[in-house]
């Protein structure tokens, strides 16, 4: 590996990591708060037929809703940043780290979805007693229907909805933040510079052509 490959990305400073930690703590508390609210509200539904409400208020359902919300919001925020260079100067880099990598990254989760999927698909069926783990793990399936088709539904709803919302968020963000959008103002970008190859990569990776990134410290000057 060439030496510059290692130094290409600016090292994360202690303050950067502090911003990520703060955002991560907030995102986790919000996610856990949603789970708690779901189980509180779902307790009333439990006695009845449950149905869609019971499924959505179960931990699996709440995680699905939180993941969809987070994917849409991250798309929206990154879309705004992509379309409007001024926002990158207005919103300090560490605040962006706090909101994206920290808060929205931690508000959404993959581990619970993967575990729920594995359990619903019956991949644990050979393990006696494994089902007992679900409740205690905080990923209890609760009112979410059981069975492999329910697992496939959960995975498809998560991924299909997540992709649709991330795409919609990016689209809306770019439109609102774009040259003609309400946030445009006196953008520092030249004509036609509102989109195209200079868009920052989600997750901070540069596009092949090179361009500003969310995690590029140089951008802030």
């Amino acid at each position: 590996m060439a030496p510059e490959a290692r130094t290409h990305r600016a090292p994360l400073s202690a303050l950067d990591l502090g911003a990520v930690a703060l955002g991560g703590a907030l995102g986790t508390l919000l996610r856990a708060g949603g789970l708690a609210a779901g189980s509180w509200a779902g307790a009333g539904v439990e006695g009845g037929e449950g149905g869609v409400a019971g499924a959505l208020l179960s931990p699996s359902g709440i995680t699905l809703l939180e993941n969809l919300l987070g994917a849409g919001l991250l798309g929206l925020f990154l879309g705004l940043l992509m379309a409007n260079g001024r926002l990158e100067q207005i919103i300090p880099r560490r605040l962006r780290l706090l909101l994206t990598t920290g808060l929205l990254g931690s508000f959404t989760t993959f581990s619970a979805l993967a575990l729920d999927g594995a359990l619903l698909l019956g991949m644990d069926s050979r393990i006696p007693g494994a089902e007992a783990s679900v409740e205690g793990a905080g990923t209890g399936l609760g009112g979410w229907p059981s069975g492999p088709w329910s697992g496939i539904s959960l995975l498809i709803l998560s991924v299909g909805g997540g992709l649709a919302l991330a795409f919609a968020g990016l689209l809306v963000g770019r439109r609102v933040g774009g040259e003609r959008g309400p946030l445009a103002g006196g953008s520092a970008r030249g004509p036609g510079g509102g989109s195209g190859p200079t868009t920052p990569r989600p997750g901070g990776e540069p596009r092949p052509g090179g361009g500003p990134r969310l995690s590029d410290p140089e951008e802030d000057g």
Binding site: G24, A71, L104, T109, A166
Partner: peptide, 29 residues
């Protein structure tokens, strides 16, 4: 402890939103 590990640490360690936005971005690119 299990809840701190799974809902807390692993819930935040893994991410759904970044995963989704990255897929859309790769596709658009």
């Amino acid at each position: 402890l299990g809840s701190a590990a799974s809902v807390g640490f692993l819930g935040a360690f893994t991410t759904f939103s970044t995963w989704m936005v990255q897929i859309v971005d790769l596709w658009e690119g």
